[in-house]
Each structure stands twice: as structure tokens, then as C-alpha cells.
Simulated assay, not measured.
Amino acid sequence: MMQVQKPQDAYVQVNEVQWQDFPEQFHTGGVKWKLLHVSPEFGIWTVMFFCPNQSILRSHIHHGPAEGYVFDGILELRGGPEKGGALCIKDGYLYEATGAEHEETKMLADTTFILQMVGPITWLLEDGTQLNQTWFDAQNLWNQQTR
């Protein structure tokens, strides 16, 4: 008889989790992160970011949908409204569709937001290479940083 393993519940007291440095190849300006949860059965990973004013998350591609909420600050998405993008301001919700490919995401103030991603992200690095980041990669990095 085959045993089915039940997924584990997770409860995170976010203010008790220490910020870690987000890998420098994915940003400029001192971005920090907290990995809050991974759900391997669906490939879902939930991250909280703190991005200082004028920091930038590099161009990337979402291979699954992502949903987020901005607690504080201002995200300039896809070049802002002048270039057909958007601003996501404190108390703002954001949704990135599967296949969304966009240029840098710039912070116009100290910004804290949460993002839940389904599937991997491909980062388009400064040297022209591409690097995939999955829930598994995020979990391994988090484990290394928090040992």
C-alpha cells in the first residue's frame, strides 16, 4: 500500500525572520529578502523583499504567474506609466502573467513587498547570460544563508 504524504502547514512570524542579502547578480542597490514558504507540490515560492530607494531588480521572465502586495514604497514596473508600464504604490497589488518578460523594476522609495511565484524565473544578467531560479534554488540559497 502506497502512503501519501500530506503537505506541511506553515506559519511564519515575519518580523522574527532575519533579512538576508539577495544575490547581487539579480539586483543593484542592496536588496534584501526573506523566503517565507515553498510549496514543492505546486512549484510555488513566497518571498518578501526590502529594496532601498533607487535599487533595481534586473530584467527577468516569469514562467508562471506571480502575485504580490506592496506594503510600503513605490515599484516602477516596466519603465513606469510613460513607457506603458505602471507604478505600484503602498497598499498596491500586482500580478505578473505567465510569460511576462520585463525590463528592470526600479524602486522610487524604500520599498517592501511580498511576491508569490509559481514556477521559475529567468534572470537576464548584466553580462547577457540567463539564469533560472526555482523554488528549489531559493530554498537552497536560504538554507545556506541562514545556517
Rank of each mutant, 00 (worst) to 15 (best):
10 A>S: 13
10 A>E: 02
13 Q>E: 14
13 Q>M: 12
15 N>K: 10
16 E>K: 15
18 Q>W: 02
18 Q>I: 03
21 D>W: 00
23 P>G: 05
25 Q>K: 13
25 Q>A: 13
26 F>E: 02
26 F>R: 06
26 F>Q: 09
27 H>W: 00
30 G>Y: 07
31 V>P: 07
31 V>I: 12
38 V>N: 11
40 P>Y: 01
41 E>Y: 13
43 G>F: 06
47 V>L: 14
47 V>C: 08
48 M>P: 12
49 F>V: 08
49 F>P: 05
51 C>F: 03
52 P>N: 11
52 P>W: 15
53 N>H: 04
55 S>T: 07
55 S>H: 12
55 S>D: 10
57 L>E: 02
57 L>P: 01
59 S>N: 02
59 S>Q: 10
60 H>L: 10
60 H>S: 06
60 H>V: 02
62 H>G: 07
62 H>F: 00
67 E>C: 07
71 F>I: 13
72 D>K: 14
74 I>L: 14
75 L>Q: 06
75 L>A: 09
77 L>E: 05
77 L>I: 07
81 P>S: 13
83 K>C: 02
90 K>R: 15
91 D>S: 13
93 Y>N: 11
95 Y>K: 14
96 E>Y: 01
97 A>H: 08
101 E>C: 12
103 E>Y: 01
104 E>Y: 00
105 T>A: 04
107 M>N: 14
108 L>H: 11
109 A>H: 01
110 D>E: 15
111 T>S: 11
111 T>E: 00
114 I>D: 05
123 W>D: 02
124 L>C: 11
124 L>W: 00
125 L>A: 02
126 E>N: 04
128 G>E: 03
131 L>E: 15
133 Q>N: 12
135 W>Y: 12
135 W>K: 01
138 A>S: 14
